[in-house]
């Protein structure tokens, strides 16, 4: 059974938390204008660099390994997602259910071993 009344506080909390943090971001902007602290100038508004104008666009292409980490993360996250219902229904599903999950884990461990041997988990 799902008790939806338990989720309503979360929704209210979400509204309050967003309101609170927006207030924290936008109030000082108003306050700074009132107190006169708000004095933008071109040099102040440039992005951080070590004393010279930036040579190139900051958004450069980066190493493909970041994608690989993200993909491996998705796969293991899904594996964990399959483990969640299993962990709370172990009593009902018995040894058969346990063995099923062990086969599933073995499949994924095979993948992990492959990734390991291929060096996909290495950062040099």
């Amino acid at each position: 059974m799902v008790d939806l009344t338990q989720y309503l506080p979360i929704l209210i909390f979400l509204v309050i938390a967003v309101g609170l943090s927006s207030a924290f971001v936008f109030l000082p902007m108003g306050v700074a204008r009132l107190t006169g602290a708000h004095k933008p100038e071109p040099a102040k508004l440039t992005e951080y660099e070590c004393g010279f104008p930036a040579f190139e666009d900051a958004r450069s292409q980066f190493d493909v390994r970041f994608y690989l980490v993200a993909i491996l993360f998705i796969i293991f996250d899904l594996e964990a997602a399959f483990l969640f219902p299993w962990a709370v229904s172990l009593e009902e599903i018995g040894w058969a259910g346990w063995a099923t999950m062990m086969i599933f884990l073995a499949e994924l461990t095979l993948g992990l071993v492959y990734a390991w041997k291929k060096g996909a988990l290495d950062w040099e």
Partner: peptide
Amino acid sequence: FLQETIIP
């Protein structure tokens, strides 16, 4: 809180 918010 009293500082200026700088947006590059």
